[in-house]
Structure formats: C-alpha cells, structure tokens
Amino acid sequence: MATKLRKYLKLYLKLAKFSASLEMEYRFSFILEVFVEVAFFFVTLFGMRVVYWNVSEIAGWHFNELLVLLGVNMVFTELVLGFVFIYNLRELPFKIAKGDLDMILLKPINSQFSVSLWRPYFALFPSALAGIVVAVVGFTRGGFAFNPIMFLPFLLIFSCGLVIAYSIGMLISTLSMWFINATPLPMLAQQLLFVARNPYSVFSGAWRIIFLTFLPIAFMASFPASTLLGKLELWWLPASVALAVVFLWGSNVFWKFALKKYSGASS
C-alpha cells in the first residue's frame, strides 16, 4: 500500500511539474487567468456586501464572520477546481464521447486517478491567496480571537471536505458514461461548491439533513470557518472523517461499475 502510494505521489509530482511548465509558457495568459478568478471572487464578495448594506446579519452570521466563511470557501473552491475539475473532470464527458478514455484504460495506472487528478491547473492557486487575505481581514475587522489550537481541527474538517467535494464531483461526472451529450455535468457538481458558500444555518427543515448527509456541503466551508471562529462542535470531527471515507469509497465503486458499462467510442 505504502509503495503504491509513493509511486502515485512520484507520478503526480512529475505530472504537476509538466503542467506548471506548460502554463508558464503563456505568462500573460496565466496572469489574466488569475485576474479573472480574483474578479469572480470579488463579484461574490460584492454581492454579499450588497445584501449586508441592507441587513445586519443573515442566519446569525455578521458580515465579518461571513468574510471568514467566504475566504475559506474561496481557498476550498480554488483547490478543488484547480486539482480536480478544470483540466480533469470537466474533460471527462468529452473523453468518453470521443473515445479518448480507451487510451487511459490501457495505461497501467488507476483509471480514476488518471481521469480526475492527471493535470493540476496552477492559475487558480494564486487566487486562493485572495481568499486567505479576505479571511484575515474578516478576522481582524471582527476582532475575533484566533486560537492556534483550532487550526488542527480546522485542517482535518477542511481536508475531509476536500475529499468529499472530490468524490461528489467524481460521482456526478461519472454519469457522463450514460448521458453522452451532457457535457456540463461536472459544472453541476461545481455548482454545489458555490452553494457551500452559504452559511449552513441558512438551510432549514429537510435541507439541513440533506446538506449534512447526502450532499454534505456543510463540511466544505461552513464548518471549517465556524471552527476557526471558535464555534467547533466536537461531533464534526468524526462525522467529517466518516463521510470522507464513505464518499471516496462510493465514488470508486461507482466508477468501477460505470466502467463495466463503457463500450468505447473510438474507431
């Protein structure tokens, strides 16, 4: 197991290096991409500011707390989009439709790894810094006390959230095996990351259960941000680990099942 993990880590580092050199060939384009990403983030921020110009709090969240939440969500979203979506899952429906998946299946590498993590997109990582800056601004303006001990549970929930987001993306994108022309399926999964920028407390009734279990977006930004703000509830820790394991396992089982249905599209 450890040898296998080391092999994939080594392979991933090589792929990442290759991807970085490819992106750096077009430096102006790279800078423009960073600019566009940051612009999208500030649009979201401005949208929330507009709401807070008219109200003082939303579901118990004041504006400075929301800045922390949006900052955490920005970092989270950029990591998931950069590592998993842009060059990988978004391409999956096209690879299936064109038959390029055949080539991937022939390689002596785990096919789920190949389709979901092959090429990282580095332009998104500098824009994640904007998220960190906004979270720090929220913390400072709000006068919240930063407790370094809270950083460990934050990291655990945040990392589990990343695994959950990856798995949901994989599960939804795998559906393209059946819906050949539904190329925006990964965008549907991506949209959930944007729903996650709402504080968990805005959801009520059955939605609270859905967003905690079947689509656990609460673990993607709301719970990590609450942890940083000193509002950690202990049950979040085992729940996040359990959900990450279940969703990752589920995405793998579903991928293998879908592969059995795949008949190839190339000539």
Partner: peptide
C-alpha cells in the same frame, strides 16, 4: 446538444 442544454438548466 439538448442533453447539454438540459444539464445547464439543472445548473
């Protein structure tokens, strides 16, 4: 591309 359009609708 109605399949794609339908998915965009879901988004």
């Amino acid at each position: 591309y109605r399949g794609a359009l339908f998915t965009w609708l879901l988004v």
